[in-house]
C-alpha cells in the first residue's frame, strides 16, 4: 500500500503541476477551451488516419515542435505520460515486426520490411497523440476544460463527476497518508501493511473519504453551488478570431495530411 500510495501521490503531484502550469500560461489561455479541444481532436484524427505504412505521419511533428518552443513544458511531464502508453504500443509494434513479413516500397526507391515501418509509424502516432492531449491540459485549466465539455453539450452530471473525482482524489490521498502513518506507528516492526489488514484499511479509507466528501459537498452547497450553473460559468462563447484560428489550424492539418500522401509506402 505504501508503494501504491506513493505512486498515487506522485501522480497527484504531477496533476497539481499541470494545473499550476496551465493557470500560469498566458500565451494560450486567451484561446477558449472548446477551440483547443476541437483542435486536439482534429490533430489526433489526422494523425491516426495515416495507414501503417504511411511515413507522412512524421510531417505532423511540426506542430508539437512549434508548440514546445512556445509553451516550454517540463520534458519530464511528457516522458512520464509516454511511459504509460508505451507498453501496449510497443507490444503491438513488436507483434507487427514478428508477423508482418511484407516488403514495403518507400518513396525514393527504398525498400524495407513492412513490420519495421508499421512499428515506427505506430510509435510516431503514439508520441503525437500523447503530445496533443498533454498540450491541451498544459494550456487549459480544469475549470476551463469543464466549461469546454459543457459547450459540447456533455451532460452536466458527467462534467460535475469529472471535476469532483479529481477533488476527492486529493481528499482520499490525504486520508490514506494519515491512516498509513497511524498504522505504522502501531506496527513498528512491519515494513508495510499486513495483507490480512488490507481490506479493512481500504474499506475504512473509503468510508472516511466518503464522510469528508459529504462535508465538502455540503460546504459547496452552502456557498450557492449548483452544478449546472457553476459548470456553465466556465462556458465561453467563441470569438471570430478564435474560430478563424481554429479554421486555419484545421486547414493546416488537412494540408499536411494530403501532403503526407507522397510518403505513403506500398507493401507487396
Amino acid at each position: 500500500m505504501k508503494d501504491s500510495a506513493a505512486g498515487i501521490a506522485s501522480s497527484m503531484a504531477s496533476m497539481r503541476e499541470l494545473e499550476i502550469f496551465s493557470a500560469s500560461d498566458a500565451r494560450f489561455s486567451s484561446l477558449g477551451a472548446p477551440v483547443k479541444i476541437l483542435a486536439s481532436f482534429v490533430f489526433i484524427l489526422c494523425v491516426v488516419s495515416f495507414g501503417v505504412y504511411d511515413l507522412g505521419v512524421m510531417l505532423f511533428f511540426v506542430f508539437p515542435a512549434a508548440l514546445w518552443f512556445v509553451v516550454k513544458p517540463p520534458a519530464r511531464i511528457f516522458f512520464n505520460r509516454l511511459l504509460i502508453v508505451l507498453p501496449f504500443v510497443v507490444f503491438t509494434g513488436i507483434s507487427n515486426l514478428i508477423f508482418d513479413n511484407s516488403v514495403v516500397e518507400l518513396p525514393f526507391g527504398f525498400q524495407t520490411r513492412g513490420g519495421a515501418v508499421s512499428f515506427f509509424t505506430i510509435l510516431c502516432k503514439a508520441v503525437l497523440c500523447v503530445g496533443a492531449a498533454l498540450f491541451l491540459v498544459l494550456t487549459t485549466p480544469i475549470n476551463a476544460i469543464a466549461g469546454g465539455l459543457r459547450r459540447f453539450k456533455l451532460p452536466c452530471v458527467l462534467v460535475l463527476q469529472t471535476v469532483l473525482t479529481l477533488r476527492y482524489l486529493e481528499v482520499m490521498l490525504d486520508e490514506a497518508r494519515r491512516m498509513h502513518c497511524a498504522y505504522s506507528l502501531r506496527a513498528p516492526n512491519l515494513s508495510g501493511i499486513r495483507i490480512s489488514d488490507w481490506h479493512k484499511i481500504v474499506a475504512r479509507l473509503f468510508l472516511r473519504s466518503l464522510d469528508r466528501a459529504e462535508n465538502i459537498y455540503s460546504a459547496m452547497l452552502c456557498r450557492g453551488f449548483c452544478a449546472r450553473k457553476t459548470m456553465d460559468f466556465y462556458k465561453t462563447k467563441e470569438s471570430f478570431a478564435e474560430i478563424a484560428a481554429l479554421l486555419c489550424f484545421v486547414f493546416a492539418c488537412v494540408f499536411l495530411r494530403a501532403a503526407g500522401w507522397i510518403f505513403k509506402g506500398a507493401a507487396w
Partner: peptide, 28 residues
C-alpha cells in the same frame, strides 16, 4: 445522464465522486 436526472437522489453525488476517486486510485 437522463436516467440519473430522473431517478437519482442528489445526496448521492459525493458518493459518486468518492467512488470515482476510489476506482481511479485502485486502477493505479
Amino acid at each position: 445522464a437522463r436516467k440519473v436526472r430522473e431517478n437519482f437522489d442528489n445526496s448521492k453525488i459525493p458518493l459518486m465522486g468518492v467512488m470515482g476517486a476510489f476506482v481511479f486510485a485502485m486502477q493505479m
